Simulated scan of single mutants.
Amino acid sequence: METKEVLLKKLSDCVFDMEDEEVADIVKEYIACGYDPKEGMLKGLVDGMKRASELYEEGEYFVPELIVCSDAMYAGIEEFQKYLPDSENTSIGKVAIGVVEGDTHDIGKNLVRIMMETGGFEVNDLGRDVPLDAFVDYVRDNDVDILCMSSLMTTTMPGMGTVIEKLTEAGLRSKVKIMIGGAPVSPAFARKIGADGYTNSAIEAVEFAKSLVGA
């Protein structure tokens, strides 16, 4: 029987190496060994996508490679979900997530979305280059527990603060918790604009989100 660490590495490599037709078999082997499905998704599949994203940022992977990597990751997640208890498929909270207007970098946002979904949240992805008013409109028109905004550009960072100001002006700020993230973002910036928190990784994001909803 393979050790958990070996199988997690195989899961990560399946995503990183774009082996979308082989990942399901590794998932079945991992499950047959009695290992935790959530850990397999997070430390295996999501880790592989994170590695691929890093190569994309370095210019060694391009969009076509990332698409196939994500196909492999989703194929693995779909297989893992067959083995999750029904209770773990119950939503622990509703999240809206998007990249602020002017910014089209969405790899980090996509990783956080996947982490949130595998962590038990119901997630609505607003996409990238989201108009600031669209965040406000979504909170106004929908039942949402957490609003997540990201930016990878210093020029678009202030948009997150503007959204919070607009929510406050509309009397909606108390309705929703707000998380922000992205390479140029910091805890100090989160405090400055009045966000409820900042995390610097997808894994931290889901744990912090759970704390916000008392899960």
Score class of each variant (00 low, 15 high):
54 E>T: 04
32 A>P: 07
51 R>G: 01
179 M>Q: 10
157 M>R: 10
18 M>K: 15
33 C>E: 09
109 K>T: 09
124 N>F: 12
54 E>P: 03
18 M>Q: 14
169 E>R: 11
9 K>D: 13
167 L>S: 07
132 L>A: 01
158 P>E: 00
119 G>F: 02
128 R>D: 09
144 V>E: 03
116 M>H: 08
34 G>A: 10
125 D>I: 14
121 F>Q: 05
107 I>F: 00
5 E>T: 13
177 K>M: 07
15 V>M: 08
143 D>Q: 13
180 I>R: 00
161 G>T: 10
153 M>I: 07
56 Y>E: 02
4 K>F: 03
3 T>L: 13
177 K>D: 01
191 R>S: 10
180 I>G: 03
170 A>I: 10
27 V>Y: 01
69 C>G: 05
12 S>N: 04
69 C>V: 02
106 D>Y: 09
68 V>S: 02
60 E>M: 11
45 L>N: 02
158 P>H: 03
25 D>M: 14
139 V>K: 07
214 G>K: 13
120 G>I: 08
210 K>D: 13
61 Y>E: 14
93 G>R: 06
155 T>Y: 12
132 L>T: 02
114 I>K: 03
85 P>V: 05
12 S>Q: 08
23 V>W: 00
65 E>C: 11
212 L>A: 09
33 C>T: 03
39 E>I: 11
164 I>V: 12
76 G>H: 05
34 G>M: 08
123 V>N: 12
106 D>R: 08
52 A>D: 00
95 V>P: 07
201 S>K: 00
16 F>C: 02
182 G>H: 07
64 P>D: 06
33 C>G: 14
153 M>E: 04
58 E>R: 14
183 A>T: 14
44 G>H: 02
58 E>I: 02
23 V>P: 14
178 I>D: 09
38 K>W: 15
123 V>C: 13
137 D>Y: 11
61 Y>G: 09
149 M>N: 04
100 V>I: 10
27 V>H: 06
38 K>E: 03
85 P>Y: 01
141 D>P: 03
34 G>Q: 09
1 M>P: 12
153 M>Q: 09
18 M>H: 05
5 E>F: 04
88 E>F: 12
194 G>I: 08
114 I>S: 08
103 D>N: 06
11 L>A: 03
61 Y>I: 06
138 Y>L: 05
75 A>D: 03
59 G>M: 10
171 G>S: 04
34 G>H: 02
3 T>A: 15
155 T>H: 10
161 G>Q: 07
171 G>D: 05
169 E>Q: 15
67 I>S: 12
187 P>A: 11
177 K>Y: 01
